[in-house]
C-alpha cells in the first residue's frame, strides 16, 4: 500500500518542471489562501442566497453546521496527527521529488486542507446538489494540487475527504443537541437584518 502511494506521488510529481505556467498555476491553487478563501466565500454567499424565508433559514442553518464541521474537522485531523506521525512524501522520497511548496512540518495523514474542503462541499451539496458537486470538484483539485506539489500521499487525500464528509454528518447530528441555541442565533442575526 505504501509503495503504491509513493509510486503515485512520485509519478505525478515527475510531471512537474515541464510546463512552468502549469507549475505556477498549481503553486497558486495549492497555496494556503486561494482554495480556503473559495470555501469560505461559498459559505458566505449561500447565507444570502435563499429565495424565500423558509429556504433562507434552511441555507443559514446548514451554513452554520458547515462552518462548525470545518472547525471540528481540524480537531479530528489533529487527533489523527498526534496518534500517527506519518512523514511527508518529500521526507521519505526527497531525492525523487521536486517540491513545489514549502516543506510543511506537521504529519501527512489525513490531509487537513482536503478535510476542510470536503466538509464545506458536503454542506453545500445538502442544499444545492449542482453547486455542491462543483465544491467537491474544487476540494478534489485542491487535494490533487498538493499531491502534485509533493506534500501529500494519495491516501492522505482520500483520508482527508472521508474525515470531511464524516465530520459533516456527525456535526449535522450534533446540531439537534444544540437546539434551540442555533435557531435562536439565526433569529438574532435576522433581528440585525443580516439573516
Amino acid at each position: 500500500m505504501n509503495s503504491i502511494d509513493a509510486n503515485i506521488v512520485i509519478w505525478l510529481n515527475a510531471l512537474s518542471g515541464n510546463v512552468k505556467l502549469f507549475d505556477d498555476l498549481i503553486r497558486v491553487v495549492a497555496s494556503d489562501y486561494l482554495m480556503p478563501m473559495v470555501f469560505s466565500l461559498a459559505m458566505f454567499g449561500l447565507w444570502f442566497s435563499g429565495k424565500n424565508p423558509a429556504e433562507r433559514v434552511r441555507y443559514q442553518l446548514t451554513m452554520l453546521v458547515g462552518i462548525s464541521a470545518l472547525s471540528i474537522s481540524n480537531v479530528v485531523v489533529w487527533l489523527f496527527n498526534i496518534t500517527w506521525d506519518r512523514p511527508r512524501p518529500f521526507v521519505e522520497h526527497g531525492d525523487q521529488l521536486n517540491l513545489l511548496f514549502y516543506p510543511p512540518t506537521d504529519p501527512s495523514f489525513p490531509a487537513n486542507p482536503v478535510a476542510v474542503g470536503f466538509a464545506t462541499a458536503t454542506a453545500a451539496w445538502t442544499i444545492n446538489r449542482k453547486f455542491g458537486w462543483w465544491m467537491f470538484a474544487a476540494a478534489a483539485v485542491y487535494g490533487c494540487s498538493r499531491l502534485y506539489a509533493g506534500v501529500f500521499y494519495p491516501s492522505d487525500i482520500i483520508g482527508g475527504a472521508i474525515v470531511g464528509v464524516a465530520v459533516y454528518g456527525f456535526t449535522s447530528y450534533l446540531r439537534r443537541f444544540l437546539e434551540p441555541l442555533i435557531t435562536g442565533f439565526v433569529r438574532l442575526i435576522r433581528g440585525l437584518s443580516a439573516a
Binding site: D23, D24, L25, R27, V28, A30, S31, D32, Y33, P36, N74, L100, F101, Y102, P103, P104, T105, N112, V116
Partner: peptide, 17 residues
Amino acid sequence: ELAGARNVNDIHGGLDG
C-alpha cells in the same frame, strides 16, 4: 517567482487556519 511568493509556512509568518 510570483506564483510561489505567498507560500510561506505559518510558523515562519504565514497565516494559520
